[in-house]
């Protein structure tokens, strides 16, 4: 049965190989915990002090509300 399927898919075997690229990309994203289109992290610097909550945090913008 598998042999029949492989024979049936023979016309698209090179395309199947090409599809390994996005599948490998997906597997890499899953294995490394990476969101492929970028995440929400806005940090532009590394905080130096452990537990240094509040110091040097970036990303707070002015917020004018209606």
């Amino acid at each position: 049965m598998l042999e029949n399927l492989l024979n049936f898919l023979r016309p698209v075997r090179f395309y199947a190989l090409l599809l390994l690229l996005p599948l490998a990309w997906f597997a890499w994203g899953t294995a490394t915990g990476t969101r492929l289109l970028g995440d929400d992290n806005e940090s532009t610097e590394t905080l130096n002090a452990p537990g240094s909550g509040g110091h040097g945090h970036a990303g707070r913008g002015l917020y004018f509300h209606k």
């Binding site: 929400d40 940090s43 905080l47 452990p50 537990g51 240094s52 909550g53 945090h57 970036a58 990303g59």
Partner: peptide, 13 residues
């Protein structure tokens, strides 16, 4: 801020 307590590395949003 998400702060790593060992390295100090921060993630922010």
């Amino acid at each position: 801020s998400l702060v790593n307590e060992q390295t100090g590395r921060g993630f922010e949003f």
